[in-house]
């Protein structure tokens, strides 16, 4: 009996120095853990943020992206619906994305300012030309969800 290769070897790209092509093809199994309500909410057209569950905490505004715990007092958060109408805080256009980008380009990238929310979440503008201060509203990709942050986008309000 002799031991044989069960898979093709590496492609030789250069003889001197010896350079080979090492192909990778694998996946990760990723959990959203305690942040799951946010991603489940997107499938139902809901924008869920979190608020500190400790009534005596100085920070009572909504966090979006959500947090399982308040970063100031570490109390568990409570889930709340965030406003779905807001304005563009800043923007850019993605022209040459990195590998794995799933949207068409050029893609307007935006940071969203929402009343009562102390953070400015990153997202994208699905329609229209962005400008700072522009009124926008949330739209949800519920038909064929990607189960990623790409299921949330914004359009002019």
């Amino acid at each position: 009996m002799s031991i044989e290769l069960t898979q093709p070897g590496c492609e030789l790209l250069s003889a001197q120095p010896v350079v080979i092509k090492n192909v990778k093809n694998y996946f990760h199994i990723h959990t959203y853990g305690g942040l799951s309500p946010f991603f489940a909410g997107l499938r139902e057209g809901k924008l869920l943020g979190t608020r500190c569950g400790n009534a005596s905490c100085e920070e009572q505004r909504i966090f979006l992206p959500p947090r399982t715990h308040c970063p100031d007092c570490l109390s568990p958060s409570v889930w709340v619906e965030a406003p779905t109408v807001g304005e563009i805080y800043t923007h850019t256009e993605i022209l040459y994305p990195g590998a794995g980008f799933k949207l068409t380009t050029p893609c307007p990238l935006i940071s969203v300012s929402l009343e009562g929310v102390c953070t400015k979440m990153m997202s994208y503008l699905k329609e229209g030309q962005p400008r700072i201060g522009m009124k926008i509203k949330a739209v949800f990709n519920m038909e064929h969800p990607t189960h990623t942050i790409l299921d949330l986008a914004w359009v002019p309000a």
């Binding site: 923007h91 850019t92 993605i94 590998a99 980008f101 990238l109 990153m122 997202s123 790409l150």
Partner: peptide, 15 residues
């Protein structure tokens, strides 16, 4: 919440 939005740090700096 961010990587999927471009897979590109230049875009994050451009914001």
């Amino acid at each position: 919440f961010e990587s999927e939005l471009g897979w590109m740090y230049t875009a994050y700096y451009a914001l």
